[in-house]
């Protein structure tokens, strides 16, 4: 969906006298001090905060939904191992086999270890630098965090001279002309693995706005539900939405 932005109209001629203007703005002086319809009044003022901004509650709901979609095992289900299996042979093995931890526990612990310092991680050659500033969660990154990749290994690119077509073909065929120096390669190859949370791609700061879909039928979500902020495509889906999913975030 193309991003349409309404530019402010600068045609304000300073003319004497008076003129008719279209009254579109929100005028607090005209709102009743004790409005009857509190919900509507709240929605009207809340709607001012921008189209693509989400409340903390909505963000939490989205994060929960993604977590749900990305889950491997349902913690509510208990499926036993059928038959008799060989017993654990050592104490270590018994401890590991009986562990009931889930992946999130392991990832949290790993994250805690990384925060503590590089001690438990395997020391190779290059020290971790900017890598640790990369985003650690799925919240939208700030522009600072969105700089892609660890900067320590971004090597100064050679000045790009105008290469000939034939030369370039040769280059791609051999993959190696002119090759990076041994030192460069060593730095690249001996870099420490990123932690799991650091390995995710980051959304650039200037990404196009999120496409919105109807909560009910999947068509473009052109209308925002006043109660919960979900998108719907039209009246028909609005009814379906209100009878099923609406007020989910309320």
């Amino acid at each position: 969906m193309p991003h349409v932005e309404v530019l402010p109209n600068s045609a304000t001629a300073a003319a004497p006298g008076w003129t008719y203007v279209v009254d579109t703005g929100y005028d607090p002086s005209r709102v009743a001090i004790n409005p009857k319809d509190r919900k509507r009044a709240a929605a009207r003022t809340a709607g001012r905060c921008g189209d693509n901004e989400l409340t903390a509650r909505q963000q939490a709901a989205i994060a929960r939904r993604i977590g749900e979609l990305d889950r491997d095992n349902d913690p509510k289900q208990q499926i036993g191992i059928p038959g008799k299996s060989a017993p654990a042979k050592t104490a270590n093995a018994r401890r590991i086999l009986q562990s009931a931890r889930q992946i999130k526990h392991w990832l949290d612990e790993e994250e805690a270890l990384v925060q503590q310092g590089p001690a438990p991680r395997i020391a190779a050659a290059a020290p971790r630098t900017a890598a640790s500033t990369r985003k650690l969660s799925t919240v939208p990154p700030t522009p600072l965090e969105a700089t892609p990749g660890p900067m320590s290994v971004v090597l100064t690119p050679r000045p790009s001279t105008a290469r000939e077509e034939g030369d370039l073909l040769l280059l791609t065929e051999n993959s190696m002309a002119p090759p990076p120096s041994k030192a460069e390669l060593h730095v690249l190859l001996s870099a420490l693995p990123l932690s799991y949370a650091e390995s995710f791609a980051t959304l650039p700061a200037d990404h196009p706005p999120q496409r919105q879909f109807c909560d009910n039928c999947g068509y473009w979500g052109k209308i925002k539900c006043l109660k919960c902020g979900a998108r719907i495509c039209g009246l028909e889906c609005k009814e379906a939405h209100e009878s099923t999913r609406c007020l989910k975030w309320a």
Binding site: I96, L97, W106, E109, L113, R121, P193, Y196, S199
Partner: peptide, 17 residues
């Protein structure tokens, strides 16, 4: 990007179990 503790578990099970 496997958590190192899970790698350790894996190695121990492979050799000890």
């Amino acid at each position: 990007n496997c958590p190192s503790l899970l790698q350790k578990n894996c190695d121990e099970i492979i050799f000890e179990q």
